[in-house]
């Protein structure tokens, strides 16, 4: 799977890793701006920041009262040269924004399930895409793995017809995928 991985972007830092990739993925509907990895004892803390803007298409959807949910996914992969890579651990975190048109409030639910209301759209989006902190336990058993992290639009929370319209790919929104070699941390 090395071949596939080589076609994606890598970010390597020994202890602390920060990268700005917003320029490279400016054209994406949703993109990961930067991630920061910190090792604390046997834990890894991932701090992810998305691009602070959402595409007009998503904004339009949001303003019409359709909830927009994102799925932050992480996978820790054990690489195999001649066979499929083995997924050691995987997790997903959902966060969403919804506009209540009657009361003119933007409701944001973060990855931990905390709900917060905003009267201003900009503030709501900022809060939505702001830093997200994820903790991975048991670093010791995961240190020889590759971290794969990306964000995608959760189609399952969109209207049913959009979900089942297999011919319409415009809603298959996914961010850039970040790979990181955990052994270098």
């Amino acid at each position: 799977m090395l071949f596939f991985r080589k076609n994606n972007l890598y970010f390597f830092l020994i202890f602390s890793f920060i990268a700005n990739i917003s320029i490279a993925f400016a054209k994406l509907d949703v993109s990961i701006k930067q991630i920061k990895l910190e090792k604390a004892q046997d834990k890894i803390v991932i701090n992810l920041e998305q691009s602070s803007v959402l595409s007009p298409k998503i904004i339009e959807l949001l303003e019409r009262g359709i909830p927009i949910a994102f799925n932050l996914k992480i996978k820790l992969i054990k690489e195999n040269k001649f066979w499929f890579d083995k997924v050691i651990k995987q997790d997903s975190f959902i966060y969403q924004i919804k506009y209540h048109s009657l009361i003119k409030i933007f409701e944001v639910i973060d990855i931990h399930g905390n709900k917060k209301n905003f009267e201003e759209k900009k503030e709501a989006i900022k809060f939505l895409l702001d830093n997200k902190e994820i903790t991975i336990d048991n670093y010791n058993i995961l240190k020889n793995t590759i971290l794969k992290i990306w964000v995608e639009l959760d189609k399952n929370r969109l209207p049913k017809a959009i979900q089942v319209d297999v011919f319409n790919k415009s809603w298959d929104i996914q961010s850039n995928i970040i790979f990181y070699d955990m052994s270098r941390l």
Binding site: R64, I66, S101, P159, K160, A161, I162, V164, D165, N168
Partner: peptide, 25 residues
């Protein structure tokens, strides 16, 4: 009434966006 109107409005918007998909499906 207000919640009902809001709910219908949201559903309407959802349907509007699903219009083409609905037709195709």
């Amino acid at each position: 009434i207000a919640i009902s109107v809001e709910s219908v409005f949201e559903e309407y918007q959802q349907l509007r966006y699903s219009r083409n998909s609905l037709k195709i499906i």
